[in-house]
Write a protein that binds this DNA or RNA. Structure first.
Lengths: 183, 183
DNA sequence: GAACTATGTTTTGGGTGCCTAATTATCACT
DNA sequence: AGTGATAATTAGGCACCCAAAACATAGTTC
């Protein structure tokens, strides 16, 4: 009893999560999931996959008999979906907010998804919702960011935009020492 | 010649980067850096540190003779400073933008700092600068985000705030399917 | 039904990163 | 100089992740 519980309580390693995500995604793309496909998707060799499948099977995250098809268990699906969700959210943040190109965003999201806690991930979601939701920043605000990025710090431009729909008001500009810099 | 080059080209592992960052920070805090201090800082045992020091020494990232003081090489300082900078920026993003509490932000920045490329990190910096810099979103905008987080989606409030300094205007609200959601 | 092909598995081994236990070096003090 | 406390190292082992090579299974083709 304690033995079984111990197994299910052990935290998953990042690699396990990657495999479950890959299997989850392949399961949605194809009729059956093959060892070969998993290997290709993750850029590893087939024996490596076989090993991991045995581990995942012991953990009751997949149903798997050798030489047979494999399927995620209910628990496995939960994990796979959660990791896929993280990936999706973080990639969305990188592409939509920070304007990172898709390929790079996809790669980095794949690493970040193991570093970020559930609660912090929620903050990412709330933040992205907020950006879209609050009229003060939503709309074409992100386009301004793009301009800012590409043409350097031009407060006049940003100010001018502001004044288009608001009266003049005081601007407080913090020094950037605390944000960026090692000097 | 090829041998030596190979050594310097191999990418650093996350663990190596953590050690270099720790040594870099300790070097600024104390007169000398001890194995014991590194172990305490990173939450590992002393033999583990000794092992890693040998590795880092082979890579010419530290100068180190056993039982003697250790120092970062020029190359080691560069890496240490860069990692420290990443840590600082990402933690700043988590605390200042997403409102994650310091302790958790510090922990997660420590993992994220190995996942994010230099160029993406620059986007983080630019974004944070932009938030402070552009009067349209700077100022007390982040306080609005906090309210939004804590009291749920209340477009009226956000709209009301907006109207305080701008005339009424149309609001476009995107569905969140693409941002959050697995359903 | 024998050879061929695609796919999956086992065996063996390497690299990293961590640990414990036992050993050795260093320093301060009398 | 000798002794004890502190610091650092060596030795040995475990978990995780990967890969090359040899072997196993099933299906196809002639």
């Amino acid at each position: 009893m304690q033995n079984k519980d111990d197994i299910s309580k052990k935290p998953l390693t990042p690699a396990m999560e990657d495999y479950l995500e890959a299997i989850f995604n392949l399961g949605k793309e194809k009729r059956v999931v093959r060892v070969k496909d998993i290997a290709k998707r993750l850029g590893v060799k087939m024996p490596t996959v076989t090993n991991m499948l045995k581990t995942l099977s012991k953990r009751e995250l997949i149903d798997y008999e050798k030489y047979e098809y494999l399927e995620l268990t209910e628990k496995g699906v939960d994990v796979g979906r959660e990791i896929h969700r993280r990936h999706h959210i973080l990639r969305g943040f990188l592409t939509d907010i920070l304007n990172v190109d898709f390929k790079k965003a996809d790669e980095e999201a794949c690493k970040m998804e193991h570093a970020v806690s559930a609660s912090t991930l929620d903050r990412f979601i709330e933040f992205m919702e907020f950006v879209q939701f609050c009229p003060r920043v939503g709309l074409d605000w992100l386009e301004y960011f793009d301009e800012y990025r590409l043409h350097g710090q031009e407060p006049d431009k940003c100010l001018a935009r502001m004044k288009e729909f608001a009266g003049g008001f005081k601007v407080r500009i913090k020094t950037m020492e605390e944000v960026g810099g090692e000097k």
